[in-house]
Simulated assay, not measured.
Amino acid sequence: MTDSLAAIQSASTKIVPKPETCYCSVMRETLLTMLEEHVLLGQRHIARQREIVADCHRNGFRADLAEELLSLYEQMQLLHVAHRDRIRNSYET
């Protein structure tokens, strides 16, 4: 290993904070808060899209595109929840 490569690797290990530091704790809480906000926002989008689908049916309009969008929102929501849970579980172990 060259001296310059060794110096870079040594410096990079000093930059990364240890998990028990306050910085990592703040980053973890910020990430979990952001992920939870994504899940909540997804719930609001789904609720609103369900209203739109119901309005389309009630007023005799085509609802196929609105239903397709609702399905996409629901699929994305599953991904958001799984991602949040995966990250949350990784911090608990």
Score class of each variant (00 low, 15 high):
residue 78 L to M: 11
residue 70 L to D: 00
residue 88 R to T: 08
residue 3 D to Y: 10
residue 68 E to I: 04
residue 48 R to L: 11
residue 28 R to F: 03
residue 64 D to G: 12
residue 44 R to A: 12
residue 24 C to S: 08
residue 63 A to D: 03
residue 9 Q to R: 14
residue 44 R to D: 06
residue 50 R to F: 01
residue 84 R to V: 02
residue 16 V to Y: 11
residue 59 N to T: 15
residue 93 T to N: 15
residue 73 Y to P: 00
residue 11 A to H: 12
residue 14 K to P: 01
residue 42 G to M: 03
residue 56 C to K: 10
residue 43 Q to T: 01
residue 73 Y to T: 00
residue 80 H to G: 00
residue 74 E to L: 01
residue 15 I to C: 01
residue 84 R to G: 11
residue 71 S to H: 13
residue 11 A to I: 07
residue 1 M to D: 05
residue 52 I to V: 14
residue 69 L to Y: 08
residue 58 R to K: 05
residue 13 T to A: 08
residue 81 V to I: 12
residue 52 I to K: 05
residue 37 E to I: 06
residue 18 K to E: 14
residue 36 E to H: 09
residue 29 E to P: 01
residue 62 R to C: 15
residue 67 E to W: 07
residue 37 E to D: 14
residue 59 N to D: 15
residue 6 A to T: 10
residue 26 V to S: 06
residue 86 R to V: 07
residue 34 M to R: 12
residue 65 L to M: 15
residue 19 P to L: 06
residue 85 D to F: 06
residue 17 P to W: 05
residue 8 I to G: 01
residue 66 A to V: 05
residue 56 C to A: 15
residue 64 D to N: 14
residue 33 T to I: 11
residue 11 A to M: 13
residue 58 R to I: 02
residue 54 A to G: 03
residue 70 L to R: 01
residue 6 A to W: 04
residue 85 D to H: 06
residue 1 M to C: 05
residue 23 Y to M: 07
residue 86 R to D: 10
residue 15 I to V: 11
residue 40 L to Q: 08
residue 72 L to E: 02
residue 32 L to I: 04
residue 81 V to H: 01
residue 56 C to F: 09
residue 70 L to F: 02
residue 80 H to C: 02
residue 42 G to K: 00
residue 30 T to N: 07
residue 36 E to A: 13
residue 78 L to K: 07
residue 8 I to K: 14
residue 2 T to G: 02
residue 68 E to C: 11
residue 56 C to D: 04
residue 52 I to P: 00
residue 83 H to R: 09
residue 9 Q to F: 10
residue 31 L to S: 07
residue 81 V to Q: 00
residue 15 I to G: 01
residue 83 H to Y: 10
residue 85 D to S: 11
residue 45 H to M: 09
residue 28 R to E: 13
residue 18 K to R: 15
residue 80 H to T: 01
residue 51 E to Q: 10
residue 23 Y to P: 00
residue 43 Q to E: 12
residue 51 E to L: 10
residue 23 Y to W: 10
residue 45 H to I: 03
residue 81 V to Y: 04
residue 51 E to T: 04
residue 87 I to Y: 05
residue 57 H to Y: 12
residue 47 A to E: 01
residue 53 V to Q: 03
residue 65 L to N: 14
residue 10 S to M: 08
residue 72 L to D: 04
residue 26 V to D: 06
residue 37 E to R: 05
residue 66 A to R: 10
residue 31 L to P: 02
residue 38 H to F: 08
residue 93 T to D: 15
residue 69 L to R: 05
residue 37 E to K: 09
residue 88 R to Q: 08
residue 28 R to V: 09
residue 46 I to S: 05
residue 25 S to G: 12
residue 79 L to M: 12
residue 55 D to R: 13
residue 12 S to P: 01
